[in-house]
Write a protein that binds this DNA or RNA. Structure first.
Length: 490
RNA sequence: GGCCCUAUCGUCUAACGGUUAGGACGGAGGCUUCUCAAGCCUUAAAUCGGGGUUCGAUUCCCCGUAGGGUCACCA
């Protein structure tokens, strides 16, 4: 490896939302740049004004920022090479176009689109692949800067090149053609602009999907005509749909990356998951922070074959990262999913923290916990439930339920009030110490089921000790009294 | 169709000529247990097919097969 500073870029076109395919490409480019203390550039390729979607540039930046992918140069951070938005660099492309035209490496296309189309049909009828260069005019005039400009392929030959992932690649002459450099609307094509920019921005490693392999000979022709040295090509494997039948695309359910934030995924989990589609450190470790990914990332370990997107594995990664979160950052992430009545600074929130941490895989599950049918609904609402719910299904006797509830009430009432306060996990332990021996002696289910329902009113909930710890002594006793009333009323 | 690329459990993958083909997700079973999760343990499950090269092929070569990509004044 040379001592040259590594520069990578992510170069999306602002034509809609970002999905995980695009983000994965950005991630790999970012990881490689950071690993080498290099530069990562976010370049906006907005040379097709027809397809541009308003707000996309903003959206792209939000998606990358959410994932923790930071760019050194980007839309509002121009570099020594100027703007990172191609539509603001038109003068640069024009200058290179003029140079190529003057050197005889490019020529104005004399045909109308209809005429070119006729040529194409002609070739099809003859069952030959259409190549514009077969119809190249014998002589051409100077380029006036307004016509369509095409590259005059400098050399018709079989191209061989090296790809850092795919190895030695080659393609025949049929892959070469006089492609368009400057469009009639004055904008450069992608094929032209990206090569100029990669060169001017000092990009050393071009990371992109395998859909660009087949156009590489044309890029190489242009590098040759311009006298530029090509960068290192790093072809990334495609991300496949989960059934592996095709590449994951927007039409196949590829979601907006920011959707995942709304669903309560952690950005580090997403980055971890994406890194493992098409890359693997070669060990059995799987859970990595962004920092660790940067340390471990190696181009040599990028795969050739495509990998499928699997949301269940993503969820697992999320759970793993969630477990490693500090209470403080857990609270931050939880904030938007809590009911309005509970703030992350409230006392009740800190009492609920251990339960929430145990229960969820995705943060949006927190809202479900507080739903009227949810496990934590009892926290904010006094329970309302049919009396029969207090009866354990294996021994549905009102008499037993009432007897044990009365006993349990005594045990809870007998505890010093202070033992309910403080750390909820410790409080739950103390409550368990007070109640469990009795339950052990008289049947765990017979004692604990009615107690848990009395406290929570729910079929599914945290265990009775934790529930009592969350509610506090007074409220716990009040709810047991309520349950006893229910039992005797009917 | 031409050209290019790819191929290990259902899925993500390890193996860089020699392993009982390993791990993870998901599945199944179990433990735990007052409920629901979580957690822990166990388990089933793969080298696309056919030829070579080699003492020995998941690994190297060839031919099939299947899948993907690409053939724009889109990127």
């Amino acid at each position: 490896m040379s001592t040259e500073k590594v520069v990578t870029r992510f170069a999306p076109s602002p034509t809609g939302f970002m999905h995980i395919g695009g983000v994965r490409t950005a991630l790999f480019a970012y990881l490689w740049a950071r690993k080498n203390s290099g530069t990562f550039i976010l370049r906006i390729e907005d040379t097709d004004k027809e397809r541009e979607v308003a707000g996309s540039i903003d959206h792209i930046q939000q998606a990358l920022a959410w994932l923790g992918i930071e760019w050194d140069f980007g839309p509002k951070k121009p570099g020594p090479f100027g703007s990172c938005i191609q539509s603001e660099r038109l003068a640069i492309y024009k200058e290179f176009a003029e140079k190529l035209a003057a050197a005889g490496h490019a020529y104005p296309d004399p045909y109308t689109p209809a005429e070119v189309d006729a040529f194409r049909k002609q070739s099809e009828a003859a069952k030959k692949p259409f190549l514009f260069r077969d119809f190249r005019p014998a002589t051409f005039g100077a380029w006036d800067g307004k016509q369509t400009l095409r590259l005059k392929v400098p050399e018709i030959k079989r191209f061989k090149w090296h790809d850092a992932v795919r190895g030695d690649l080659e393609a025949g002459e049929e892959a070469l053609d006089d492609f368009v450099l400057m469009k009639a609307d004055g904008y450069p094509t992608y094929n032209f602009a990206h090569i100029i920019d990669d060169h001017l921005m000092g990009v050393t490693h071009v990371m992109r999907g395998d859909e660009f392999i087949s156009s590489t000979p044309r890029f190489l022709s242009l590098y040759q005509a311009l006298g530029f040295t090509p960068p290192i090509f790093v072809t990334l494997p495609p991300i496949l749909r989960d059934d592996r039948t095709k590449k994951l695309g927007k039409r196949d359910g590829a979601k907006d990356v920011l959707e995942y934030r709304i669903e309560g995924y952690l950005p580090e989990a997403m980055a971890n998951f994406l890194a493992f589609i098409g890359w693997n450190p070669g060990t059995e470790e799987e859970v990595f922070t962004m920092k660790e990914l940067i340390n471990r990332f190696e181009i040599e370990k990028i795969h050739k074959a495509g990998g499928a997107y699997n949301e269940e594995k993503l969820a697992w990664f999320n759970r793993q990262h969630l477990l490693r979160l500090s209470d403080e950052s857990f609270a931050e992430h939880a904030a938007t999913f809590l009911p309005d009545s509970i703030s992350t600074t409230s006392a009740i929130f800190s009492r609920l923290l251990p339960v929430m941490r145990d229960k969820i895989t995705l943060f949006n599950e927190i809202s479900a916990l507080f739903h009227p049918e949810g496990e934590l609904h009892f926290v904010t609402t006094s329970p309302d439930y049919p009396a029969d719910r207090l009866l354990w299904k294996k021994n549905p006797s009102r008499e037993t339920a009432g007897k044990h509830l009365t006993e349990a009430r005594k045990l809870l009432a007998g505890m010093p009030a202070g033992e309910f306060d403080g750390n909820p996990t410790e409080a739950a332990d103390k409550i368990k110490a007070a109640v469990f021996p009795y339950a052990e002696a008289n049947g765990r289910g017979d004692v604990l089921w009615p107690l848990r329902v009395a406290l929570t009113g729910q079929d599914k909930s945290p265990d009775p000790f934790m529930s009592a710890a969350i509610l506090g002594q007074q409220e716990s006793l009040r709810r047991i009294d309520l349950a006893l009333t229910k039992l005797s009323a009917s």
